[in-house]
């Protein structure tokens, strides 16, 4: 187990290194950042000077060494637009994104798991068929469009929920959070609901497939025969075993949610990471894009690592080599 953990950790470092190379190379192909920092009417001498200050006059390899060296020392560069350390900007926005992602995940699990268990346990009922068609529709919807429709109906027409922003936040352990205020919840519901739809549909389908597989097993019949209630069999024996693939999907979906948060945040003007990324792309703010990608890559490899570890824990049949 220890050997496996160490091997996985080394793999994580390797993946992050590859990602840093790719991110660096791709970024050097994007527009010239010099023109983002200097006034339009600069002379050639000023352009050259700015290029020198940013280190862009050196070879690509040298630039990479400088970039890597900075990163290893915790220096991720300064935003061209905000003129502050890119990492600070990102960390400042991170809680807002994590909030909608976590709330979306909870929405998805609360709706999808019970419905998936029901549809998997009674595959031939009309209600199950309706649930499955609904989930297929959920996968087929462009999430940004759903968000717009929610804004149009619930914020513009009926004015039940606000259409944008984060609402009141409360400082908690140094983080500004919306989930601790009622106004914050008003603001968080629509973006999280929008974000959760696709995940909800996917988790529902995986749960159902897992349940259908489990329902055929003898231990389910045995548990029922020995007098466990139907509900107890479904949730205690069935779901527990059907949950294994769901855990993996949960992990992968967390990554997808962070990615799709860029769109949701843009629609709802939610001041999180995703909106920062899109704004930075428009303004060719390279350092911010790089830090965002490296941070997201880091989050992903950590999630994958945790998923693998949790796997062996929830399913003792899986042994690691």
């Amino acid at each position: 187990m220890l050997g496996y953990t160490i091997k996985r950790l080394l793999q994580m470092i390797f993946v992050l290194w590859i990602v840093s190379v790719i991110v660096f190379l791709m970024m050097s192909f994007t527009g010239d950042p010099v023109f983002m920092v200097i006034p339009i009417d600069s002379t050639q001498a000023e352009i050259d000077q700015a290029r020198r200050i940013l280190g862009l006059d050196r070879s690509l390899f040298e630039q990479y060494l400088v970039f890597m060296n900075g990163m290893l020392q915790g220096d991720f560069g300064r935003s061209y637009v905000y003129r502050q350390p890119a990492m600070d900007l990102i960390l400042e926005r991170l809680p807002a994104t994590m909030e909608i992602v976590v709330v979306a995940m909870i929405f998805a699990a609360l709706v999808a798991i019970p419905l998936g268990v029901y549809a998997g346990a009674n595959p031939n009922r009309t209600a199950s068929r309706a649930i499955m068609s609904g989930s297929l529709l959920g996968i087929s919807l462009p999430s940004f469009w759903v968000g717009m429709m929610l804004i149009f109906l619930l914020a513009v027409q009926w004015q039940i929920f606000p259409s944008s922003g984060r609402g009141d936040t409360v400082e908690f352990m140094g983080l500004k959070l919306s989930v601790l205020t009622l106004d914050g919840w008003y603001h968080i519901i629509l973006p999280s609901l929008t974000l959760s739809l696709a995940t909800m549909a996917i988790i529902l389908r995986i749960t159902r497939a897992g349940m259908m597989e489990v329902m055929r097993q003898d231990y389910m019949k045995f548990a029922r025969a020995k007098g466990v209630s139907r509900r107890g069999v479904l949730y205690g024996h069935g779901l527990r075993n059907a949950l294994i693939p769901v855990v993996t999907i949960f992990g992968l979906q967390l990554g997808d949610l962070i990615a799709f948060a860029t769109i949701t945040e843009t629609i709802f003007a939610w001041p999180g990471l995703g909106k920062l990324l899109i704004d930075s792309i428009y303004r060719a703010d390279r350092p911010v894009i790089v830090v965002y990608l490296m941070l997201v890559a880091f989050i992903f490899v950590v999630i994958n690592f945790i998923v693998d570890m949790v796997y062996t824990w929830i399913d003792p049949r899986i042994t690691v080599k």
Partner: peptide
Amino acid sequence: SFPSMLIALFLMS
């Protein structure tokens, strides 16, 4: 290990 949407977004940017 990365969502398709994010890779595509990054490439397009």
